[in-house]
């Protein structure tokens, strides 16, 4: 039993997600990702179960672990009560801790997620808010969303939201003292360090690729690369 396998076993989601897989493939049959990508949750379970560090390392450096949509449909159907989706979460965590995620095109996307969603959580108290769904990056949202986006205060007022104002209500401004509690929680629980780790490994990769990653946000070449690059080799 190797080092990576042991670290995986420290993650509760690995313990809960993979008890004993009999390789039946039911999870693969139900998996939305297996239909879209060259992806097979049964094989993931098999690789981890074999506890061979070399294959686990390969997996952690591959695009494969980033194909799952974390829908957890596999949990419902597995005759053994496994959850490959939870195992994936443990693998992704370890891949980021080891810095292996920057070896794959899909793994490198973590940088964009950290910059957009991570920053949004810490600076506004929301994972997602209307201003992040910019029609230029989201043509699929259609012209009605574009109209909403261009008229946010008016539309939000009409439907009873409390848009960017104090007090309770939808889309209210989250007070600075609340944000400081959230930031404090991230500090104490290792969330902040984890963000930092993603930043550092990503910046090293950006240097290696001769791309600028900036200090904040998505207005830089590395962000554009990871956010839009699709080699088409995933199906």
């Amino acid at each position: 039993m190797g080092r990576l396998y042991e670290r995986l076993c420290e993650d509760l989601r690995c313990l809960e997600g993979l008890k004993s897989c009999m390789n039946c493939g039911v999870c693969t049959a139900i998996c939305p990702s297996a239909e879209f990508y060259r992806y097979d949750p049964r094989k993931i379970c098999d690789t981890v179960q074999r506890a061979d560090d070399e294959s686990i390392e390969q997996l952690l450096k591959s695009d494969t672990i980033w194909y799952c949509g974390e829908c957890m449909s596999c949990k419902t159907r597995c005759p053994r009560g496994n959850t490959p989706g939870l195992l994936i979460m443990a693998l992704r965590k370890l891949s980021q801790e080891m810095g292996y995620f920057t070896d794959s095109e899909k793994g490198r996307q973590q940088f964009a997620i950290r910059r957009v969603i991570g920053d949004s959580i810490l600076t506004t108290g929301y994972c997602m808010r209307p201003i992040l769904v910019n029609p230029a990056n989201h043509p699929e949202q259609g012209p009605v969303w574009e109209w909403v986006y261009n008229n946010l205060p008016e539309v939000m007022d009409k439907v009873g939201a409390n848009y960017l104002k104090d007090g309770p209500g939808a889309l209210r401004r989250i007070a600075p003292e609340v944000l400081s509690e959230i930031n404090q929680i991230f500090q104490v629980t290792g969330g902040q360090d984890f963000f930092q780790l993603i930043e550092e490994f990503s910046k090293d990769k950006a240097d290696e690729m001769c791309l600028d990653a900036g200090e904040l946000g998505g207005d830089n070449a590395y962000f554009s690369e990871v956010y839009t690059k699709n080699s088409g080799n995933h199906h």
Partner: peptide
Amino acid sequence: YHTDIVPFET
């Protein structure tokens, strides 16, 4: 959490 940037402990 489900984009794997937020740890379970957090």
